[in-house]
Design a binder for these strands. Sequence first.
DNA 1: CCTGTGGAATGATATGTATCAAGTCTGCGT
DNA 2: ACGCAGACTTGATACATATCATTCCACAGG
Lengths: 251, 251
Amino acid sequence: MLWLRSCKLVLLQIDMGSTIQNPACQHCKDRFSSVFCKAEQCNLEQIDQAKVCSVYKKGQVIFHEGAYPFGVYCINDGKIKLSHSGDDGREQIIRLVKAGDIMGYKALLSNERYTATATALEDSSICFVPKDLFMSILQKDASLSFEMMRILSSELRKAELKITHLAQKPVRERLAETLLFIKETYGVEEDGHTLSVRLSREEIANLVGTATESAIRLLSEFKKDGMIELEGKKIRLLDLQQIVKTANLQD
Amino acid sequence: MLWLRSCKLVLLQIDMGSTIQNPACQHCKDRFSSVFCKAEQCNLEQIDQAKVCSVYKKGQVIFHEGAYPFGVYCINDGKIKLSHSGDDGREQIIRLVKAGDIMGYKALLSNERYTATATALEDSSICFVPKDLFMSILQKDASLSFEMMRILSSELRKAELKITHLAQKPVRERLAETLLFIKETYGVEEDGHTLSVRLSREEIANLVGTATESAIRLLSEFKKDGMIELEGKKIRLLDLQQIVKTANLQD
DNA sequence: CCTGTGGAATGATATGTATCAAGTCTGCGT
DNA sequence: ACGCAGACTTGATACATATCATTCCACAGG
């Protein structure tokens, strides 16, 4: 019983991430692409004062499905996955989050518990803005509200498109689409081809919505067809045109 | 060439719906459940003045995927389906809209074209609020903005859940879930069992995300198992507990 | 009344994907 | 360097679901 409690304590510590010197929002390299770029200057300063910036190691959980939200998270640097865990334990990746993005706003706005778990895909530095402050600024700052609505609308549009594709497209097309989506989201390395995230095959499968083995098999096929190149977790998109064609995108 | 143009004119006329006596928002039976209930009184009056209420017949299209939005629609009475049409022409129903709900806000907020088509499931009376007015009120009225964000968040949550289920659950479970969803949305008739919408088998399939024949077959099974009763397009949910169990809902 | 039409139902069959079961590889801690 | 656990890969097989074809049925129009 004793070890259990101390174990929990350790976990808690891990979950908090380690607090680092707070970098000023005004100097954040993503201040022009983030939501907050729309906020009024005075509000931005308030956020800057109140926020807490932490570093999370790869694999660490930032927040858990079912937990109550106490604020929003703004990614300073790094890559995060947001995922639902289905009834049978299989996870479904709902969103990929990058620097400048915020997360955790949905639960906050609808005043419910988190419906997804946020996990760091690599070491990441993340700012936390407390609920009360965020909500009160949202009340006063129309352009921030507006930006939030824009983001929500855009996420909703993407989600609805994903529903349609999940219902109507075969795994092969969805996998090709997912590769393009990863490229859109996180970009490529200097060579212009290698995706700049390292995802496990299981994660790719959970993004596509299929079994791990199916994802592996199709990736091998793509490789055989010369569309991609595989080297461990590195994925190089060689023939982009062919991938787009395979994805069979119309809308 | 001439007949083509006149044909288009006729279609346009149909699409507009027929304008009727504008009922006052203040007397709308759904004014307490709609988004606008949160709007400040003065703004509500403005909306009331500017809105145009029209009647659409069953099967009529209110707006089309790909068209530009000029305002939001608020359902006064009736039932609407919102659907994507996939690449192969099959439609995916993404939302069922009822009295008091609004639609068309997503395209408006993200300033893009409609990504879905709205079709009346039965004769419906729908109010149209022009874009400029809606947007300008949104700028001033924080509580309306807030309510919009709440709605968007909630829709997003539902969409993400649907993604997970579509990826992980078999058709049988999704069909049961869909029946419950229809009940939640539109309710039942006086007998307490019969769903109060008439949907074609194809529409049910498009809601579940499966082939029409599969939906039909499973509905027959449900009937054989005594969970439901079928009579043409009427569906009676007899054994709710069993349906919930079949849906296998955990989250 | 017949007849045509569109939705509904059912059966036969094909096929994509999941699942199970071995293997192989790889990185990591000792 | 070793060995071990976890990730990856590949193959064999089962199964759910889509697809195609046919029949049935209700209903509207001539």
